[in-house]
Every structure is written in C-alpha cells, then in structure tokens.
C-alpha cells in the first residue's frame, strides 16, 4: 500500500517537474538561442547572444525600433562572430510574417548593392549584408573597417541562412502584380500606413515605367475583411479631389486628383482595394489594373 503511494507520488513529482520545466521553457523562450550557434562554418561567437523583444528593442537601436515594430517585430537574436582578425554583428529579426520580412528588406536594401545568394533575397555591400528568409530579416555588419570583406561576409551569411528555417521564395502576394512594365525590384510591402495614410492599413505597392522619368505607382491594400476594405476605400476616397466614377469590368471605382501623386484611380472588390497613383498614361494604368484584377479573379481571391 505504502509502495503504491510512493509510486503515485513519484509520478506526481515527475509530472510536476515536467510542468515546471515546460513553463520555464515557455516563459524564457525568447532567451533561447535558435540560430546563432557558438560555431558557424569557421566563425566563432565572440560573446553571449543577446535577445530583444518588442518591449526593449528600443534599448538596442533607439527610435529605429519603430521601423521594426511597424512590421510586427517579435524577437531579435543578436550575436557577434569572429574569424581570424575579422568581426561581425549578426542580427536576426523575427517579424510578423514572410511579407513583413520582405517589406523590411525591400525598404532598407541598397538597390546598387551586389546580389547575395542567401535567403529569399539578399544584397551585400562592404559595410552591410542583408537578407530575409521566412519571417526573419537578417543584418550582418562588420564591426570595423578592417572587417569589410565581402567574401567573408558571404560565407557568414550563407551559414546563418542555413540555420534559419522558412521559405526561400518571395512571398506569393508580391506575384499578384502584373509583370509587363513592372520596374524590377520596385515592389514594397508595409504592415501599416500604406501610401503613408494610416487609414490605408497594410498593403503592397509596385512601380511601372510610364515613359520618361514618370512612374505609375500601383497599390493593393490588404484589409482583413470586406467591412475593413470599405473603410479603406472610403478613407482614401476622401483624399481624392474632383472624383468621377471609374469602371473596370463590373467593378465600380473612382478617378480623381491627389495633392502629391497626381491622378489616382481606385477600385474595391470584396476585401481588396487596389488602384494606382501618378497616372500619366490612362490606357496603361487601365491595362495594369485590369491585369491585376484578372489575377485576383484567377486566383479566386475575389468573387
């Protein structure tokens, strides 16, 4: 009888310890090294990994934290790696989604930088290497000018990329934009303030060559539901002056002038609000929006 009780209490104790361990793991999950191992393909970590969350990212990068918070920042794993006389900081930001990581990358990458074969997209300069993979945005920065070596950074970037899980493709939403006339690499994504209007929420933009120095800017707002989409549509409608009705197949829209972006055209269909700004060539604008709408239908994203 006593033996049975001891056995029962032993199980209880084991279960209790398991739950304690589990709760500690969950509570301190942000402090667990996920990617920045002590050794990475010939590089050695020079100090303990540091972690930041939405509450203390400010302590690491001051006001620039606002940028990452706007992309749904969750966690930063920060490490310093050495190889021979070279040293680099590696920052792995976990953001809201693949789209958020894409948005953060595209907003900050230097268009003249060399391409980097790491993650979904990457670019490399002597003083900065950036790429993204899944919801992770990664920066590698030499700690001094002696470490500004592109070859060494490529090796480190490849090693970090290999540790990070996630898709190595560009997010599928980006492919909704028609390819004809698209200025390569011009697609952008923001989690808030699309076109710098709070009312527009999250969404994508892309630029098209209209000839000369003129670029047509196409946008696709991504509200959560039809009701929110209507708010977005009505909100942006307020910014359009001298509006007249526009039509795209069976879809009603509006066409008019905006203060800093010239002529704008906008449509709403189900939970999607799309349109373009800086319209110089109406035929071209109509063609791009037609193709975009066609893609939304083809992918059955709208009824």
């Amino acid at each position: 009888m006593i033996g049975l009780s001891i056995k029962r209490y032993s199980w209880c104790f084991i279960l209790f310890m398991f739950l304690i361990t589990l709760s500690v793991t969950v509570s301190f999950g942000q402090g667990k090294v996920l990617f920045l191992d002590e050794k990475l393909n010939g590089f050695t970590r020079a100090e303990e990994v540091r972690f930041y969350n939405g509450g203390n990212l400010y302590e690491y990068i001051n006001g620039q934290a606002v940028f990452y918070l706007s992309y749904g920042f969750k966690r930063l794993e920060h490490g310093v790696y050495k190889k021979a006389d070279k040293q680099y900081t590696v920052d792995v930001y976990e953001l809201n989604s693949r789209l958020s990581a894409f948005g953060s990358y595209r907003q900050q990458r230097d268009e003249d930088a060399d391409k980097l074969d790491a993650g979904a997209e990457g670019s490399i300069l002597t003083y900065l290497t950036v790429f993204y993979k899944g919801p992770y945005y990664v920066e590698i920065i030499p700690t001094d000018s002696e470490s500004e070596d592109i070859g060494t950074m490529r090796v480190l970037a490849a090693a970090v990329s290999a540790k990070i899980p996630g898709d190595t493709d560009i997010p599928p939403e980006v492919a909704l934009f028609p390819q004809k006339g698209l200025i390569a690499g011009s697609e952008r994504y923001v989690d808030e303030n699309l076109l710098s209007y709070a009312v527009m929420g999250r969404g994508l933009t892309a630029s098209y060559d209209q000839g000369g120095d003129s670029e047509l800017r196409v946008f696709l707002a991504l509200p959560d539901n039809n009701e929110e989409a209507l708010k977005v549509y009505n909100g942006f409608n307020e910014k359009i002056k001298n509006g007249t009705l526009a039509k795209l197949e069976e879809v009603q829209g509006i066409k008019g002038e905006t203060p800093y972006r010239g002529m704008a055209i906008m449509y709403i269909r189900d939970k999607y609000v799309f349109g373009c700004l800086s319209v110089k060539n109406e035929d071209m604008a109509a063609s791009v929006l037609n193709q975009l709408y066609g893609t939304l239908k083809k992918k059955q994203l709208v009824q």
Partner: peptide
C-alpha cells in the same frame, strides 16, 4: 527616420517645415 514615402516629406516642406532630420544609419 522611419518615413517611407517621398510625398510625406514633400508635403511637410510645402506646409512650411524647414528642419529636416535624418542620419547615415537610418
């Protein structure tokens, strides 16, 4: 520091703001 669209700064300058702050690192 965290401004993304050219038009926003353009609008601010047109409104009369004349002090503009950026940084090498932003």
């Amino acid at each position: 520091m965290n401004t993304r669209d050219d038009e926003l700064l353009e609008a601010a300058i047109d409104m009369g703001i004349n002090y503009v702050d950026t940084a090498w690192v932003y």
